[in-house]
Design a protein around this nucleic acid. Structure first.
Lengths: 404, 404
DNA sequence: TCTATTTTGTCAATCCAATTGTCAAAGTCG
DNA sequence: CGACTTTGACAATTGGATTGACAAAATAGA
């Protein structure tokens, strides 16, 4: 229960102005003033600060209308960069992206259940290498995001601090404060998030979720994850497990089973191998689908049936604008699943509803997780503060003078 | 995407200070300053305004510690009153309550599917009568809340304007702008809410939900309703139907059925009457339960089984702190249902979780709906603004000078 | 008992960001 | 070409939080 003051109001306005230019730009100062209901003078002052930080630039003038031609302001995506690392049981994927989400460098390495220590080494080394290769000063990196599979534990709900716990089928990672360790080594702010939520954040910032207030994100990787977006913000719930539909108990043949059970890639691989298929990784599923393999199709259909029921619950409980399906599955397989899902959901939706959430495919493609993870520091730096009281200060390394 | 300024920051601080005193009072100015991280001087100024509006009063001094004895400030619940009307197919219930939620007058009348016109007449008349009886000037009424069963439609999501649509089994009420009509007649601000959400708001403000950030409220009346609280605020979703679990499709014997079907009081009454019981209204169920009536027990158990699955979905999707069960059922029947629910939920929760939401009974008792409805205007008047931008102005009639 | 210390709440002055008002510049409309 | 619009900056004002100082009133400890 904290009060606020001018300073916090200012940092709020700063972010609002920057966000307006970023998402609707190019805009003139007068445009921004109208959009935010602040005065032109106020916007002028704020824009001066943004210009001096090179977060926006003046690009051209708008002619054709009456009056003085307006000076157009544009967001400068190369003002800073972000690094994302996505870790799972079999890969380390890294990405360097600019503030617009454009990938400058992508790197991927196959791993075999890496330990936290090993991962830490690799991430440290990769970061230094990236900075050198791209000739970027450390001060231009606004932060590092790490994505891990599986649930997190809320350590300090005020600070939104979280830790990895019990990542499903990923031994050695229990209770590892990996973000703190990497932050110390790199002297950069590091954010940790489970890769499903990170993908949802990425989708909301750059992808299909742009502009949506409420949506649910289904993340398909080696398992099943989910992320819930409410009021334009990721929602974690009490313990940080909101949206984790992988653990959802559903009734199957009379007894309860976790929904994630029907989406275990390991189990699918074993089943397919037993049928004589040569399957090593998720990418291989695209081949099988192209051949209309009946085993895969049957598995997909059953999975869709169960998932559809969970999504119906989401629809009626949360009443969202969209259900977005993404993850590291090959895109054709995702598309097939979405078709299946659509059928199952429609047959379950009895009530004649005047509207229904849209079921759509993630824009990010198979790299949804890394892209999401890399947006974490950007999101924290740029997103408008939703609470303007005295604690809502963001921890962005860059532009602390401006955006804090 | 709106900016903010000093004025909005001030109205925010005003509410924060009042809320601190209301919920944690009595407090000294210095206490409030520490709690809000504002300066003592700022608090002094704000408190002066609250004193002049009689929203708080100075009550005694705190001795025993070092230093000047602190002047204690206390919330003044009689500074204003609120009127609530709960309408359903068979009743009109009215309540006059003070800002602490204490009921001054309660009135109930049995009705038989009243039309909007008839209800409007009755509510207008009752309001005038209440004011006269209690000798209250109109200016002391901060607003009127109306509760109706069934779903609403979001008319203007920015202004949170909503209308009744298709109330289940309540003909003549489709698309009725009842709130606007009553507001015009009474010249008072009127808020409309479905009674399940209203009950949840009441519970969060005065009852078991006090202090909880995220909870789900199950409302049992003539049908099944629900309300979702997120970040301490009622959450409506895109179309205003979030939490409406009555429409949730669940699988039963191979085909989908709406969850509300298993909670239809009309169908229960018919069934019990066919068994020879004399049942007219919900209150009569208490008798049957006291006799351990097997028909009722079986019905309750089946209902609990289905509801438990929905609540499991809530648990895993939203990760709330509590699930609260309330409504207009007799309290003993609610208690029995909760016992049943607890068993069913525990048997479904496979994952070994380190914590689980608490399943609890509403504090409000059988009047949960009216009490919740009457808190609507109070909630809107007192609750801290969550968005401090230029549109978040509250429409409270009273104290507009202060709290807007 | 007396002094040092702590704490409260107010007064006065300052600070800071948004607002108001004005105006020159630069275009379009008729 | 003159009337009108629109932009963006300058200057002065406003309003609310902050800072610093202080008197008053209590307790702790000698």
């Amino acid at each position: 229960m904290l009060g606020t003051n001018q300073e916090y109001a200012k940092s709020y306005n700063l972010r609002i102005v920057l966000e307006a230019i970023r998402t609707n730009g190019p805009l003139s100062r007068a445009d921004v003033a109208r959009a935010t209901r602040l005065t032109r003078q106020t916007i002028s002052n704020i824009v001066d600060e943004l210009l001096s930080q090179h977060l926006v630039s003046e690009t051209g003038r708008q002619q054709g209308r009456r009056g003085t031609p307006a000076t157009l302001l544009e967001f400068q995506p190369k003002a800073a960069y972000s690094i994302g690392f996505d870790l799972d049981q079999a890969h380390l994927t890294a990405v360097l992206m600019d503030l617009n989400g454009a990938v400058e460098v992508r790197y991927q390495e196959r791993l075999n259940y890496p330990s936290p220590q090993e991962s830490l080494e690799k991430m440290t080394h990769l970061t230094e290498q990236l900075l050198e290769q791209q000739n970027l000063p450390r001060s231009k990196i606004c932060g590092v995001g790490i994505g891990v599979p599986g649930p997190m534990r809320m350590l300090d709900s005020a600070k939104d601090q979280r830790q990895v716990i019990n990542p499903h089928g990923f031994p050695g990672w229990e209770n590892t404060p990996i973000a703190e360790h990497l932050a110390e080594r790199l002297d950069l702010p590091v954010q940790l998030e489970n890769n499903a939520t990170a993908a949802a954040i990425g989708e909301s910032f750059y992808g299909a979720g742009q502009g949506l207030k409420h949506f649910f994100y289904v993340f398909l990787g080696m398992g099943l994850g989910g992320g819930l977006f409410i009021q334009g913000q990721p929602f974690h719930g009490l313990g940080g497990n909101a949206g984790e539909i992988g653990f959802l108990p559903i009734q199957n043949a009379g007894r309860y089973e976790q929904l994630g059970y029907f989406f275990s890639a390991d189990m699918l691989f074993n089943m397919l191998r037993a049928q004589g298929h040569d399957i090593k990784q998720l990418e291989d599923l695209a081949h099988l689908l192209a051949q209309d393999d009946p085993d895969l199709l049957a598995w997909l259909d059953q999975a869709a049936d169960h998932l559809a029921r969970a999504l119906l619950s989401v629809e009626y409980l949360v009443d969202p604008e969209a259900l977005i399906v993404g993850g590291s599955w090959p895109v054709p397989v995702l598309e097939h699943l979405i078709q299946d899902l659509r059928q199952h959901i429609n047959s379950g939706r009895i009530q004649h509803k005047s509207y229904a959430p849209e079921l759509m495919l993630s824009h990010a493609g198979e790299d949804a997780a890394v892209l999401g993870v890399a947006t974490l520091p950007i999101y924290h730096m740029l997103t408008p503060l939703h609470h303007i009281h005295k604690e809502a200060a963001p921890q962005s390394r860059l532009f602390t003078g401006v955006l804090s």
